[in-house]
Write a protein that binds this DNA or RNA. Sequence first.
RNA 1: GCCCCCAUCGUCUAGUGGCCCAGGACGAAGCCCUCUCAAGGCUUAAACCGGGAUUCGAAUUCCCGUGGGGGCACCA
Length: 493
Amino acid sequence: MSIKPARTRFAPSPTGHLHLGGARTALYAYLLAKKTGGQFILRIEDTDTKRTVPGAEQEIMDGLRWLGLEYDEGPDLGGQHGPYRQTERREIYQRHAKILVERGHAYPCFCTPDQLEKVRQEQMKRKENPHYDGTCRNLAPDETAKRIADGEPHTIRFKIPHDGVTVAHDHLRGDIVTENKQLNDQVILKTDGLPTYHLAAMVDDHEMQITHVMRGSEWLGTFPLHVNIVRAFGWDEPTWIHLSVFLKPSGKGKMSKREAAAAMKDGYSIFIKDMQELGFTPEGVMNWCALMGWGVAEDDVMTVGQMIDRFSIDSLTPSPAAINFQKLDHFNATHIRLFTTEDLAARIKPYFTREGLLVKDDVLLKIIPLIRERLTTLDDCISFGAFFFKEDVTPNSEDLIAKGLDARQSADIARRVYQILEAQPDISHERCEPLLRAYVEESGLNVNQVFGILRVAITGQKVSPPLFESMEIIGRDVCLRRVQNAIGILEKL
RNA sequence: GCCCCCAUCGUCUAGUGGCCCAGGACGAAGCCCUCUCAAGGCUUAAACCGGGAUUCGAAUUCCCGUGGGGGCACCA
């Protein structure tokens, strides 16, 4: 491969939960880095100290690792281009802001938030676009110097040319041409001495030698500004890739708090932290996520490792994608079927334990082939397999009555089945199934009636893994006891 | 209000001027298999937003609408 190694980064702000959109951005960045033999970096954009949420950074790191997106450099790993937390890089930004001021690309601004708000209100009243009115753009140098010397609080604003256009190139959308008069002299360094995103991200991407910037399309609006900042420094631009947003399942608008809550009620989530608890696998989530915004023609079941081979930024799509949770189910179930028995056993065990069940490892291994293709989510193992680990089951009495028969008749059948099973030295399915089929045959009943009663007696439920294989695993003694118990229930009706 | 982005089956998408009466996947319907539920196999329905233009020829290029999304902070 003759492609140059790419350095990519995932740069979230620690203001909330790691969600689907972030996970997908991280995935694509990871894929590109790995595909080209480059590095994938985690950078924490925590310059808005008021919005920083304790624990959010840890959740991001945990989430990425759970998804299998190991970063090569990051806050907890270090690296050649650290620190990787923006609040620890203050001086770097201040130095760069100063350079911009010296070169005439930026200027100190003494306007207070109150003044700014007033101006904005008046502009709105006049139906003008809200924008900075340029009060401090052309202050005399000595006045500026004096006010700074007096300790007057100030910000630094980036100076956008009044005339002309800015042409910014996005890899997915081509040239985006914006008239400069539409642009605003944005604050790049705040009163508190910390940078805004516009400065911090540009400086860091350059300093960290990022080659491809992947970010959400919500940055498209400030894209021309960013390009201007990079050019003001005289730096080479990275390849810019603005990813589309995720829309709620209806396709009308993006996911809101309400949508998120509604999804949760259905056993789905857009937050990575919930995925494991809901029984989703990293493989399923990543596969699902990857395909919303990446056009893969066929064979779309892939692990992250397989995605690396096939990934290309040219096949990314620019249009917004509606989230489809049914497809998450599909990918999750498909990957579950691909796991080895040992792997699936290890992944499922915690869900049994969570239910307070004592798991015998040898039994666990034996039930995997029986339940594997029945699982959509890992926690489905409870509904299909909990009865293997319980001392006794408590069948619903009505479920024990076979279709078309009454309690008496059903009890008779159960007693006969008991006799047949009791006469056997073991209850391997090879031995028992033919015997019981023969009984069905001679009794004139149908298999669903007889097997149905047995199923409910043994498993306590109407839907279960294959009956005879299950009985073999449970063992003769327990099976006989459970059938006996069912007879007792039927006799009391 | 202004600016920007997007537009193929219900959904995710393939398609880069003729290979397309548009292909795949999820979902849906039907059949087969079957001890329940699944899984699996087979089959069916289902789309190029509208209007102009360019061209011998347009899902594919351009323009105008329309619809959807995003942005207009000392937030990211």
